[in-house]
């Protein structure tokens, strides 16, 4: 790599490709009926891309990927009012995972993903408290933490399976 300030075309292309892949996964997941009748619980398969990106791109690049994913995801999903939950959850998750990356190596990405998912659901719940103007929505928190552990482990293991099959980059 040459200058650090310029983002090189190769990197930008890979980032765009990943964003597109994340969006495709997101839209496909929307078609799968959600069996859980609790707001905010889903598998979050698009986060396979997010956890991969956390370990392979710079923080600013991952933030870009996530923001674009969330924006277009909300628009395609036809539920723009839900964007506030995705944003608060996604950004808290990302902040946590960028810190955890120093502690947890790529071979244990599923573990980082579990914490990411739990943080995501925590951020979501905090946003819901402000939107609903009542603390009562915190009643869902244990369910969201429990579901986050499962969904996070699942997407994390999926990401690990994919990373193992990818050709090593630089």
């Amino acid at each position: 790599m040459r200058q650090r300030k310029k983002i090189d075309t190769r990197r930008l292309t890979r980032l765009a490709l990943l964003t597109a892949a994340a969006l495709i996964i997101f839209v496909i997941e929307l078609q799968i009926p959600n069996p859980v009748p609790i707001p905010g619980i889903k598998l979050g398969l698009a986060n396979i891309i997010t956890v991969y990106a956390v370990y392979h791109f710079k923080p600013a690049e991952v933030v870009m990927l996530l923001l674009v994913r969330i924006f277009f995801g909300s628009v395609y999903g036809g539920n723009v009012s839900a964007m506030i939950f995705s944003l608060s959850g996604g950004l808290l998750c990302l902040a946590g995972m960028l810190l955890l990356k120093r502690m947890i190596d790529e071979d244990h990405i599923w573990l980082a993903s579990v914490f990411g998912a739990v943080l995501h659901n925590l951020g979501q719940t905090v946003a819901a408290v402000f939107v609903m103007k009542t603390l009562a929505v915190m009643g869902y928190l244990p369910f969201l933490i429990f579901a986050g552990c499962i969904a996070g482990a699942f997407t994390g293991f999926s990401a690990q399976l994919i990373i193992r099959r990818l050709p090593k980059e630089k």
Binding site: P39, N79, F85, M132, A136, V137, G139
Partner: peptide
């Protein structure tokens, strides 16, 4: 008691 019915939108 722990699971309220919530309509976020």
């Amino acid at each position: 008691a722990g699971v309220p019915i919530v309509c976020l939108p």
